[in-house]
């Protein structure tokens, strides 16, 4: 898969964006879902909720761990992936696809520049 239109945060979230649109899709990285193990529950922000970059917007739980999910960008929550309520394991199977978390309408497109590209992220987690 191509990571060209994706950016990564140091808290292991990814953002997928399109030119000419402020609506981005976010999720957690393959590395993060692997470290957590089998994901059993996700607590989402509410649709319409305002987010500030790098503040917690939800939590993700495995059997014996719980981690905060940080908003990779500032903006407003437009959609959450409610499918994950019934089957959170999708995050483990398809972290960059069907396992997406929320769609955010960015309020400041320039924040994308503060995030990492895939190769930079890989280097951060020691895989690059």
């Amino acid at each position: 898969m191509s990571f060209e239109n994706m950016r990564f945060s140091k808290e292991h979230e990814w953002v997928q964006f399109e030119e000419g649109s402020n609506l981005v899709t976010t999720g957690i990285t393959d590395y993060a879902s692997g470290e957590l193990g089998d994901i059993v529950y996700i607590e989402f922000p509410e649709v319409g909720q305002e987010l500030k970059s790098m503040e917690p917007m939800g939590t993700i739980e495995a059997v014996k761990t719980v981690a905060d999910i940080y908003a990779p960008l500032s903006g407003v929550v437009r959609e959450v992936n409610t499918v994950l309520n019934d089957d959170p394991g999708i995050v483990n199977q398809s972290p960059y696809g069907e396992g997406w978390f929320v769609k955010i309408e960015m309020s400041d497109r320039s924040e994308l520049d503060g995030l990492m590209e895939k190769h930079e992220y890989d280097r951060m987690v020691g895989k690059g």
Binding site: V40, Y41, E61, A62, V63, K64, T65, V66
Partner: peptide, 9 residues
């Protein structure tokens, strides 16, 4: 559901 509990959270 032990993630609700003090030894994890």
């Amino acid at each position: 559901l032990q993630t609700r509990e003090q030894h994890i959270r």
